[in-house]
Design a protein around this nucleic acid. Structure first.
Lengths: 348, 348
DNA sequence: TCAAAAGTGTTATCCTTACACCCATGT
DNA sequence: ACATGGGTGTAAGGATAACACTTTTGA
């Protein structure tokens, strides 16, 4: 994996045409949504739009896709992000395409259907471009503001015991109105797996599962906004995490899940750190993203034996203490095949 | 993971609306493409349409998506597949969305743009439904017919030395007309990684990378059909693998890549085998999909220690030799959290 | 009795995890 | 000198990969 996109985004053969003998389906518009991630020291950041607007929730950068203008969706995405925010994206990867007839599509309105294609993009925060960014109406926000239950670096997040788990427990105790055949697991089983109840280990990659459960249980503000019946149960509960517009928090959850998984088998962290870095800095970035604390020495050994980095020879007189050796990413490893990533296993 | 779909396919909040102050983009049609996979003894199968039609290439089942009719794309997919083929899908997962302005969109025609959303679906071959299937114009085909260079079970596929690698070598030797900035790796590097040249191990998951290289080099019939200049180089070479319509072989390559990867960390094989099976049968299915030979005993130990299966108590008087114990998938593991899959590592 | 396939024992090796401990700098 | 963070040695336990070997059937 290079700093550019994965191979799947390349042109290639044409898309299929409608099957013969069938009516043409309703015309649909395509929206591109980008979860643009950077890390500032200990804080993973996500780029949001309209962060200051009163009454409006924050959202992910969004742009319509016009196939007449851009050859591929990824090109379209890079173009509108750069145009809107003056931000050049490095690594970009497609996440998921949502084709839902959303609750925001007005009933009876047969024309306005929007599909959204979610993308994950990694970049570095650029101090120089920061004003242009803010003028464009976008800004960086710590992503754990939207997912406070996902940050386990300093131990179990208090919001779990204080709010989330008691409420989920209540929700599990209620029988679902109708068992759905496409949903073979009962509520409690799903919560067990997602939140690590009853001996199941907490899996930091299941960000989306957790968000979806909270949504279904009506515990996030978006559920009420969308008219979920279950939301009525928690009138007095304070909101669980900052809400976002439309389904953007869901897209962000997908992005975090994917990024946490990808860290382990592709060297994508290096898209998020500066050209030279200390091993501790690198570790802090990995911890920031994966939301868990790592064993210093094992992390170092891991980094060494994957041969992903090399010393620059310089040292950094960082924040007190002994100067740290500076490293750089060995770009050659991309040509060496063993694209390991930092495959962290087991519990910290 | 259950026999039903992954959680990402669930309804949830609405999609985004177009950004204010921007023109509405061109209207687009959505096509759904399904790579439907089954395994028959030693042969992985893919469901194709128009398999007998003269002059027409085979293609993947295709249906337009109409958001007015179906709430989500996955529901739409299940519906059109069942309608067209009488086949009930088990596990379904979204692969990738291609938004390319395909070469098949007529130039100057500003209206007809089709995006295709690719899906992977796993199922079991159903002997009873086979006639209905054929009547509907669909049939099963061995997938290695489309990718003969991907089957390493009995050793290195001859087509590599006979045709593919010499041609790729020639293609690498030619300088690309223009180095593209979004393509940081040179041809030879890319081939090294994808096909395992010069000490790089052959990675069975890189099915898509290999197909894309062959396409770019003009070595597959689709490249000539699409008017790739590089295709002119290989006038006298026999076709490399069976071609498919449009970009369907590319979608199939994506599906195989994903399935080969998924086998290792999610228990999806069990979607492809009967309710009870011998361990050797299970191994043969894994081998069929991953395209490599596995060490019998290590495979068994793996299966045992993941606790994914249990003995039924019955035995099977199979094809000669000592009767084999029958096993079944322990569906409870889905509720136990440790969703390991058969994490095969290293070389066979 | 032999072929064919099922099923096991064992070992060297590597990877993972977790100890505890030393080193170089600024104040 | 001591606080702070950088940097290491080593060993137990477990997982892997690869040996070769025994067992149970049908022909």
């Amino acid at each position: 994996m290079s700093s550019r996109s994965a191979s799947t985004s390349e042109p290639g053969p044409a898309a299929a045409l409608p099957a013969a003998g069938r009516e043409a389906p309703a015309r649909i518009e395509i929206g591109l949504n980008a979860a643009i991630v950077a890390v500032d020291r200990l804080t993973p950041l996500i780029l949001v739009t309209q962060p200051g607007a009163k009454g409006r929730e924050e959202g992910l950068p969004f742009g319509p896709f016009d196939p007449l203008e851009h050859r591929t969706m990824e090109i379209g995405l890079r173009a509108f992000v750069e145009e809107q925010t003056r931000l050049r994206l490095g690594y970009v990867e497609q996440l998921y395409t949502f084709g839902d007839r959303g609750r925001h599509a007005r009933r009876g309105d047969t024309a306005a259907h929007v599909m959204s294609v979610g993308y994950l993009a990694l970049t570095r925060r650029d101090e120089d471009g920061e004003e242009a960014l803010k003028e464009s109406g976008a800004d960086w926000r710590p992503w754990y503001g939207y997912f406070p239950w996902e940050d386990w670096r300093t131990g179990r997040p208090p919001i779990l015991d204080a709010a989330i788990e008691p409420a989920l427990e209540r929700w599990c105790a209620m029988a679902p109105s109708a068992e759905r055949p496409d949903r073979p697991l009962a509520r409690r089983e799903r919560v067990r797996l997602a939140f690590g109840w009853g001996g199941v280990p907490f899996d930091e990659e299941r960000v989306l599962d957790r968000y979806e459960l909270l949504y279904e249980a009506g515990l996030v503000p978006e559920a009420r906004r969308d008219g979920r019946a279950s939301a009525a149960l928690w009138k007095d509960l304070p909101p669980i995490g900052r809400p976002m517009r439309f389904d953007h928090r869901r897209i962000l959850a997908t992005a975090i899940s994917r990024l946490r998984a990808k860290l382990k088998y592709r060297p994508v962290v290096f898209e998020l750190v500066a050209d030279s870095f200390t091993l501790t800095e690198l570790q802090k970035v990995v911890e920031a993203i994966s939301g868990r604390h790592l064993h210093k020495q094992n992390f170092r050994r891991l980094v060494e034996q994957t041969r992903l980095v090399e010393q620059t020879g310089e040292t950094s007189i960082s924040t007190g203490g002994r100067p740290a050796a500076l490293f750089r990413f060995r770009r050659e490893v991309m040509k060496e095949g063993a694209l390991a990533g930092l495959r962290l296993r087991g519990r910290p």
